[in-house]
């Protein structure tokens, strides 16, 4: 009996720990790699001709997952001695993490508003540069069994997946719906934490439709069907990248931001469905 009780007490203690940390670790799952950036020391000199060296952490909008993973690998190949670690999540989550002191070297946002939160606090080195644009699209189950032809068909179609109102894709979706005069009852809307989670609700879950970025729908391949939103009704998301002034590897972070604007990276972005910066 004694041992049983002490064992139970042990499990209980472990649980208190779980309860205390549970919310935080689930919710903040994006910043796991955030500490990595500060651990290596910078190259002795950042002068021209010197090889770049060091590890940077880049926080990037979830919609950039595929394109940036490839661009990061290309950058590492172009600059041996550098390592780029990514944290992908909603731009709203990422900007909040950076405001809360997450050690990040560069931030690529899916909108200008979340970048502005950082420039307002003088956290950004120089001016953020727009490197891509994106548009929204309706996604449905493969084959579009519900016969959704446009925004007007969304009410009554079943559960619709939208991004959280604080995520850029959530704000853009609200704009697009309002512009089309379509009102969705919140009791039939499931909110994804970011663009990828919203897509997953349609691709894996039971949501009848969702509004995500064109690039996400393309990345999902056959898992969803895409229904275009007319150009004049669509929103355009502009993606700026900014180097954070507190970076321990300003030279590498600046080089990465520059690289994203270069021809090679632009070709990768185009391949994934992004529009050019202007």
């Amino acid at each position: 009996m004694k041992t049983a009780r002490s064992m139970v007490a042990l499990v209980l203690l472990a649980l208190v720990a779980l309860v205390a940390t549970g919310c935080g670790s689930d919710a903040g799952s994006g910043d796991g790699g955030a500490e990595a950036g500060a651990t290596t020391t910078a190259a002795a000199a950042g002068g021209r001709g010197e090889a770049l060296e060091g590890e940077i952490t880049v926080s990037a909008a979830a919609s950039l997952t595929e394109a940036y993973t490839q661009i990061g690998a290309d950058f590492e190949t172009a600059h041996p001695g550098t390592t780029v670690t990514f944290t992908f999540d909603s731009s709203g989550t990422l900007s909040q993490q950076i405001l809360d002191g997450a050690p990040v070297d560069a931030f690529a946002s899916a909108d200008e508003a979340n970048m502005a939160k950082l420039t307002d606090q003088d956290l950004v080195d120089g001016e953020p540069q727009v490197f891509a644009r994106n548009q929204l699209v309706i996604v449905t189950k493969p084959g579009n069994p519900a016969g959704i032809e446009g925004l007007a068909d969304l009410p009554g179609a079943g559960v619709v997946a939208l991004c959280a109102a604080s995520a850029p894709c959530g704000r853009f979706a609200a704009q697009v719906l309002e512009g089309a005069g379509v009102a969705l009852d919140e009791s039939s809307v499931t909110r994804g934490q970011n663009a990828k989670a919203t897509l997953t609700a349609v691709a894996e879950g039971d949501a009848a439709a969702g509004i995500v970025y064109v690039t996400d729908a393309r990345a999902a391949g056959d898992a969803v069907a895409a229904v275009a939103i007319p150009e004049e009704r669509n929103a355009v998301a502009t993606y700026p990248i900014g180097v954070l002034a507190g970076s321990g590897h300003l030279d590498v972070a600046r080089a990465f931001a520059e690289y994203v604007l270069g021809d090679e990276a632009q070709a990768v972005l185009k391949e994934h469905g992004f529009l050019p910066p202007s």
């Binding site: 549970g22 919310c23 689930d26 919710a27 909603s90 709203g92 989550t93 909040q96 559960v159 997946a161 959280a164 109102a165 604080s166 995520a167 919140e186 009791s187 039939s188 809307v189 499931t190 909110r191 994804g192 934490q193 989670a197 997953t200 609700a201 879950g205 949501a207």
Partner: peptide, 23 residues
């Protein structure tokens, strides 16, 4: 959030609401 979704009043429990409100 993965299985039941995140619908106000139907499946949005406290931890989900906390996560949405944080931002």
């Amino acid at each position: 959030i993965t299985f039941a979704g995140n619908i106000a009043g139907r499946t949005r429990t406290l931890p989900l609401a906390v996560y949405l409100q944080l931002e």
